[in-house]
Amino acid sequence: MRHPPDPTSKAAIEDSALFFVDTARATVSQEGEAMAYSYCCKDYPGMEACPAAFTAETEAELWKHIELHGATAHQEEPDKWSSEDRQQIKNLIHEM
C-alpha cells in the first residue's frame, strides 16, 4: 500500500512555499491590489469581429500573446508593426 508523501518533508515544504510565493507575486501588487493587464482584439480598428481577448500578469507577457495572436490569427508580421500601430495597441491595454 502506497502512502501519500509526508507534508512535513523538506521537498513538500519547499514546493508549498514556492507555490505561495508565485501565487502572491502573480496576484497582488505592493499596495495589496490584484494586478493584471488585458487586451481585446476587437477594440482595434478593423478587428471588430475578432473574439480574442488576453489577460496576463505583466504587460510584457501580454505583448507576447498579442504578437502571437496577430501572427497566427491575422497572418500579420508583428516585427513589421509600425511604432504607431504599437502605440495604438498600447492605448488599448487596460490595467486591471
Rank of each mutant, 00 (worst) to 15 (best):
11 A>V: 10
13 I>L: 14
84 E>G: 09
60 A>I: 08
59 E>F: 03
95 E>T: 11
19 F>R: 12
4 P>G: 07
44 Y>A: 11
23 T>L: 03
7 P>R: 01
46 G>K: 03
8 T>G: 05
1 M>C: 13
30 Q>G: 15
50 C>A: 08
72 T>N: 04
4 P>D: 11
43 D>A: 01
44 Y>V: 12
51 P>L: 08
33 E>R: 14
66 I>H: 14
7 P>D: 03
86 R>H: 05
46 G>N: 07
39 Y>N: 08
93 I>S: 02
16 S>G: 06
79 D>F: 02
30 Q>P: 12
40 C>R: 11
62 L>I: 09
47 M>W: 10
50 C>H: 08
20 F>R: 02
52 A>S: 15
45 P>L: 07
2 R>P: 13
38 S>G: 01
82 S>Q: 07
27 T>K: 06
46 G>E: 04
70 G>M: 01
71 A>Y: 02
30 Q>S: 14
18 L>I: 11
1 M>I: 15
36 A>R: 04
8 T>R: 00
68 L>N: 15
5 P>R: 05
87 Q>Y: 08
25 R>N: 13
76 E>Q: 03
63 W>Q: 11
91 N>H: 06
89 I>S: 00
3 H>K: 15
7 P>G: 01
31 E>L: 13
95 E>A: 14
89 I>A: 01
18 L>N: 08
92 L>H: 05
39 Y>K: 08
72 T>Q: 10
18 L>F: 01
70 G>R: 02
85 D>H: 08
40 C>Q: 09
14 E>C: 03
24 A>Y: 12
55 T>S: 08
62 L>K: 05
64 K>H: 14
55 T>E: 02
87 Q>V: 09
67 E>R: 13
39 Y>C: 09
75 Q>N: 15
22 D>R: 08
36 A>F: 00
51 P>I: 07
